[in-house]
Each structure stands twice: as C-alpha cells, then as structure tokens.
Amino acid sequence: MPPTTRSDISLRVNGETHVLTVDNRTTLLDALRENLGLTGTKKGCDHGQCGACTVLADGRRAVSCLQLAVAAEGSDITTIEGIADGEDLHPVQEAFLELDGYQCGYCTPGQICSAVAVIKEHAAGWPSAATADVRPDAEPVPLDAAEIRERMSGNLCRCGAYTAIVRAVARASDETKVTA
C-alpha cells in the first residue's frame, strides 16, 4: 500500500480544537479558510511575500500560506477572530479603528496579528534590523516609527495606509504599556 497522502489532524485554533482530515498539500491558510470557515485570515500572494495571512502560532507571528496544516498540528493558533477578548477589542484593534489604520481592509487582519506580536517582541527586548546596536547590554530602543516600519515590513498594504498603520501600532504599544 502506498503511504497515505492525507492526514487526520487536530488543529487548536482560538482555543478550540478541531478534528479534520486534510490532504497533506493543504496549507494552514487554506485549512483555516476552507475547512474551518475562518475567513478573517486573508490570502494575498500565497508565497510568503505579503503578510496578509499572518496568524499567531504559540504566540509568535507566522505566515500561514507557507505552513502546512499537517505541520501546524500541535501548535496553538490564534487568528484575527481570536485576537479580541470576547466583545472587548484588543488595544491594537482599537488603535487601527480610531486612527484609520486601513483603507480597503484586506491586509488589516494580517497587520493586526503582526502588530500584536511586534509589541510583544519589542517588550521582550528583541532587536530589529533598524536597531543600531544589537548587543544585549545596549540601551533598549523605543518602539519609534523607524522600528515599527522595519518590524512591520513583512506586511504589505496595497492601499498604502502605512502612515496610519505606523501611528496605530505606536498608539497600541503605548496603551499596552499603560495597562500592563
């Protein structure tokens, strides 16, 4: 018997476990959208180049279009549908709304998932390519516009809403600090 090219998997998404059978070729992105009906996560390029499909896997941002669903089994996935706390929007969502961090909104779920992680990565002391001195004893860098632009560069916006996106991420980062 040839080895099977389908797999029975369980995917943990937004705190719920889903049991499904997938063709091994199915990406996490397609499994979320087509099998689980979670269409908030968007498909832009399908080649890792645009960030529209960004989700959190075990709290870390990842593109879901280059991740196979079968390989995602065992990780805790959070999509845009799971970012808010019930009816309470996440500070990043609030900031995007208040500051118009979008035009058409297509890239927005990916931008928001990415920004949630960017704020955590920065708080954890992760340097970026915009950080002048990456040595661990250097002064921590503020999450200023240059840092936000670099850290968010994996999320393209065809509408060019970048100016407002940068402001929204900065605002959300400040608010997260106040409430933390």
Binding site: T54, A57, A62, L66, V134, G154, N155
Partner: peptide, 21 residues
C-alpha cells in the same frame, strides 16, 4: 554579544513572520 554581525545578518533577512518559523 559574541557575533553581533550574525544577529544583524539574520535580522536583515525576510520578515518577522518568516524568521519565526
């Protein structure tokens, strides 16, 4: 600390959501 150019090189590649995986 020991190889800052290596850290910088990796950070200069791809994007945050690709480097994480």
């Amino acid at each position: 600390r020991r190889f800052p150019a290596l850290s910088q090189a990796v950070l200069a590649g791809a994007s945050g959501q690709l480097r994480n995986v």
